[in-house]
Every structure is written in C-alpha cells, then in structure tokens.
Simulated scan of single mutants.
Amino acid sequence: MYPKVKVFLHSFLIIVIAISCQSKDTFSWNAGFSAPKHYGATGPFVEYFYQGQSIAGASSGVGINPGWEITSGGYVGGDKYKTVPDSIAVKWICGVDRYSYEGGSKLPRNKMLELFKTKAIDSYGNRQEYSLIVAGMAPGGNVTIWMQGGTGSTEICKFKTENKGVWKENDTEYNKYITEHRTISEAFKESSFFWKIHGIPYSVWEKGEKEYDYDIGFSSEEEYKFALTFYTKDGSLFQVDNKSSFLPWKYRFVSYPKNSDHLSKKKKLPVQIHIQWYSQDESRWFNGDIIMPQNLEKKINSSQFDRMIISIEKDTQDKVIGDIYLVNKSKQDKIMSFQLGVYNESLKKLMAPEYSLPKGFVFPKWEGREHLEFPELDYWQEK
C-alpha cells in the first residue's frame, strides 16, 4: 500500500473514532459573558458545571461593557466538545456602584439540549450551530443566560446573585486610584452622561425589555451618508446605515415597502440615538446624540405604528434640524425634533451642543450608591 494512502486511511480512522465516541449530548461550544453598554462589569467570571464537575468557564481581568447580549472576549477554558451544563456560577464587580456580586443557578438543561439539536435561527432566517453559552451580568446582581449561534440568540433563564458588599471599600490606595481614574477617563465621562440622562433601570434587567415589530428608515433632502447607533434601556445597541434603510425624500411617507433585511425583525425601543450625517466626499460632518421622548413606549402601544423615520431636510452652515416620525400606512406622527452640529476640523469641536432633548424631558433621580458630581451637560432642547 502506498504511504500516502496509508496516511489518509489512518487520519480517516481517527476522525471516524472521534465522531463515534462523541456523546449525543456533547456539542462544540464555548463560555462567554456580556454586560450592558455604560453599565459594565469588572473582572467577570463564569463557570459551567455538569453533575458537580466543572466543564467550561471564562474570565477577564478588566472591565467589559460591549452591550447587553453582545459577547465579550476573555480567557476561555474547557474542551472543544462538551456536555450541556446543568448549573452555573458567576461573579463580577458592578461598574456603576462597585458592589461585588456572586452566585449561581440551576440551568434548564433539557431545553438547552433541544436547542443545540434544532440549531439557532439567525437574522436572515438561516440555521446556525449554537456555539456559545453567554452570561450577562448587570447592575443589581441581575444575570441573564443566552445561547448564541452566529447572529441567532435565545434567552435561557434569568436569576439574581448575592451582593457581597463594596469591592475594596476600605482600601485607601484603591479608592485613590478610582478617584483619579474617573477624573481623566473619557469613557467614564461618557458613561456618567448616560447615567445622568437615563438613570439606572434596575428592573429592566430583572424583568426583561419588550420588543416591537418595526423597521427604521432614514431620509434627507440632500443624499448625504449616515450612520446611526441605537441604545436601548437595558444597554443593548444596534446600528443602521445608508446601505439598508435610506428612503428618498419625496417618497419617505408615500412609498411603504417593509425593509427586507434584519432591520425589520423585532427589536427593543431606543432611549438614545447617536447619529453621524456626512457629505459624499466626507468634507462636512454633522454629529449628535438624540435623547428619545420618555413616553415613546406609550405612543407605540397606543397606536399601530410600525416604522420609525429619522429625517434631515438639508445642510446649513453650522447646524441642521431634523425630525423623528412614527409611521404606518395611513399616517405619520412627528414625535420630536433634534439638532446636529457640524464638526469644525480647525477648531476640533462641534458647532452646536452634542445632545438634543425632547420637550418635557425630566432627568431621572440618581439611584446609585455613591453621590456623583455629574459633568455639565451641554444640550439643545426642543421648545
């Protein structure tokens, strides 16, 4: 027998033996973790067990806040093919209040086995192998577990962990470091703005956030490019650009086909939208953050709106005014206006306030453990 043939047969035999030895409840998956955007987790650790034996885990020595349900990387341990776990242990330090949380829970193993066998359905309706079991860690000690495959994600369960007290509360050096870090950190400044505007919605991580069947359109009289990032109450985020959701100005209300891709699936409502609007040659940039009306969910629930349209009429010297509508086949309801400032390259600044607030906006009461001196918020508010 030729040597190459012998090598091939030997390799083939090893593969066949490996497949035959794989248990029917053993799958290729890894452990992951997640935390809400602007409500991060420091030093996250997760470990999965089956019948009291550790089978997989993940940890990180730094803080994470990739967005709720979005998986963050870190050190991952465990074999490639693993049995489905029956329990979990987690611990982390909350990035908002520095409380240390630790605990665990039983997992619905039969449900997870069935999901591994039937596979995940991604954003485009295709089936993908589940490859991750993700632990989301949120303020208040709230944990959510998901199974994920490609862009498909299925919630498995929720549970609460025990508050172990303030991390290094009496450590003088550590407290000094935290104070100095907050003074110079742009990331902390951005998060503290978010807290000032939206507070800490503890209950949303405990109960979950409702999703709605609506799509998103963007329209402008001048066909500038655009990019939108939508932030939801629970710290999730999703993005939209001109490739999938642009509506010609004169047809923004008249023509009404549903967007065909992932933007038309069910999604949470935004509480804040970051927008960039820029000319085709990228010589002029307008930026800003739009704070959505606090009664948006009530408006959606009381009507049959199934599209949100963000519109900007035309370019001006230093700023532009835009509008947001809720739309259906028969009517459109303008819910707010917003302002964007042009970015001045020579001055390295926006020529208008970064934040736009709707009429009647009320800043929430701060519920965090520590009294924070929030930085001054420069904003434009609709009259």
Rank of each mutant, 00 (worst) to 15 (best):
E162N: 13
Y231S: 12
T161E: 07
D333G: 00
I178L: 15
V240I: 15
S303G: 11
S72P: 00
N259H: 07
M308A: 09
T232V: 03
G235V: 07
E47G: 01
Y325W: 15
P248Y: 03
I321K: 13
S185G: 04
A227K: 11
P66H: 07
A352D: 01
L326C: 07
F286N: 08
P270M: 07
Y124H: 08
T151F: 11
L132P: 00
Q148Y: 03
Y99R: 14
S185W: 07
F159K: 04
T144W: 01
G40M: 09
L340K: 05
P66L: 08
L357Y: 04
D333N: 15
V16M: 13
F305S: 04
K359T: 11
N295M: 09
A35R: 08
S23Y: 03
Y202M: 03
H371M: 08
F246H: 09
V204F: 02
K298D: 14
I200W: 01
G73S: 14
K91L: 03
N170K: 14
D97N: 15
D333K: 10
F12S: 15
K233R: 15
K119G: 01
I300S: 01
S220P: 04
F194N: 09
Q51Y: 08
H371Q: 11
I70A: 07
I145K: 04
E221K: 13
K314G: 03
S11E: 15
E114I: 02
V204D: 01
F159N: 04
M147T: 09
E354C: 00
S220V: 03
D122G: 05
Q272D: 10
M336Q: 11
Y101N: 05
S330M: 09
S346M: 09
D261Y: 14
K329Y: 12
V62T: 11
I156E: 07
K268C: 02
F49H: 12
G149Y: 05
T118G: 00
Y224T: 01
E370N: 13
S264P: 01
V143L: 06
Y130K: 02
